[in-house]
């Protein structure tokens, strides 16, 4: 019988974590000669439950990964003693689903088979909200954002704009929840770093596309430590001075280093790589406190990273390119 206690969660997570695929196993799968061989090797590790390689088709890997992620979210909901903070890490599932429902409605099609399960909001409720354009059942921040989007859609359909508004609502909601809970734990550090990194990335993209301040403003996410004012001012700042301008708050040094790295390499993925590494570091550090939320969130993000690595491996096998594994939990 599940018990909502950190001790129970710690015990359970300790065993669930060893069932995860570590970097060694993933590299071995990545070294398989064919996609088929990689699938057989993956299923031999126990991933996917009782499935065996002989009766599983190559294209089923996406369903297997999705099923595993759904299971890991269900496990986390079951064991977490702190659902108020845990839900913040699962909001991205709802954000993805809202976008999927909205795009499907605009295209006049049924929702494609890309929905994610185990989020914070009921999936049927979300579907009904988007279908009827009535968002009363959503939290105020989401309701306001979705009503604004519906107004915008009457004028023009801009997927980038409504996507940014939904992301922005998610971060506003996270910040509001963290403030309500008076949270100063790793959860705030995590989302603050993520927001600052995303904002820096948006700034670089905006400069590249020659956007003006009005266009980048809605793209900036709340919850970060670097004031939006500095990002808006930085739109005209010379590239070599950007790192100095944004080196503010506890995340500033890392953002500045990443900007310098970008300056030397001119590759936008450097932001994502550095962000993923830094976010994983925060969670790994938090997981050393066994009587806290760290191990539970570490497990959740570890499963996400594992799924991402598997998708990278299988896509690389299909297209015949070299595998470059993303940041892993273990």
């Amino acid at each position: 019988m599940p018990q909502a206690s950190y001790a129970y969660a710690m015990g359970r997570v300790s065993v669930m974590t060893i069932k995860m695929l570590d970097a060694v196993k993933l590299r071995r799968i990545a070294e398989a000669a064919t996609e088929r061989e990689a699938l057989v090797m993956l299923l031999e590790t126990g991933y996917g439950g009782n499935l065996s390689g002989s009766n599983t088709f190559n294209k089923e890997i996406d369903y297997i990964i999705r099923d595993q992620l759904t299971q890991s979210r269900a496990d986390v909901w079951e064991i977490t003693p702190d659902p108020e903070r845990t839900k913040l890490f699962l909001l991205e599932v709802d954000t993805h689903n809202i976008k999927a429902f909205l795009k499907a409605r605009l295209l006049g099609i049924e929702v494609p088979d890309i929905l994610r399960y185990g989020g914070v909001f009921n999936l049927d409720m979300l579907k009904e909200c988007v279908k009827t354009k009535n968002y009363e059942q959503l939290p105020d921040i989401y309701k306001k954002a979705m009503n604004e989007i519906e107004q915008d859609l009457l004028r023009e359909v801009d997927p980038l704009s409504f996507s940014a508004k939904i992301d922005s609502a998610m971060f506003r909601y996270i910040k509001a929840e963290l403030d309500r809970l008076h949270d100063h734990s790793f959860v705030r550090d995590y989302f603050s770093l993520m927001a600052d990194f995303q904002n820096a990335r948006s700034l670089i993209r905006a400069r590249f596309l020659h956007w003006d301040v009005d266009k980048i403003r809605p793209q900036l996410l709340e919850c970060g430590e670097i004031d939006h004012r500095y990002f808006l001012e930085a739109i005209d700042t010379p590239m070599e001075q950007l790192s100095g301008k944004l080196n503010r708050g506890s995340n500033g040094r890392l953002i500045a280093e990443t900007l310098d790295d970008y300056n030397s390499k001119s590759q936008l993925p450097v932001f994502k790589q550095k962000m993923e590494t830094a976010l994983m570091e925060i969670v790994k550090k938090a997981s050393y406190n066994p009587f806290g939320l760290g191990p539970i969130i570490g497990y959740l993000l570890g499963r996400n990273a594992e799924a991402k690595a598997l998708r990278v491996i299988f896509n690389a096998k299909r297209s015949g390119v070299e595998v470059n594994l993303p940041e892993l939990y273990q």
Binding site: A7, M10, G11, R12, V15
Partner: peptide, 20 residues
């Protein structure tokens, strides 16, 4: 407290009963 942690481990891997 130890029992809660033991129940957590056991629910995933009952073979560890003796150790826990």
């Amino acid at each position: 407290v130890a029992g809660e942690a033991a129940a957590g481990v056991m629910s995933e891997d009952p073979d560890k009963f003796g150790n826990v």
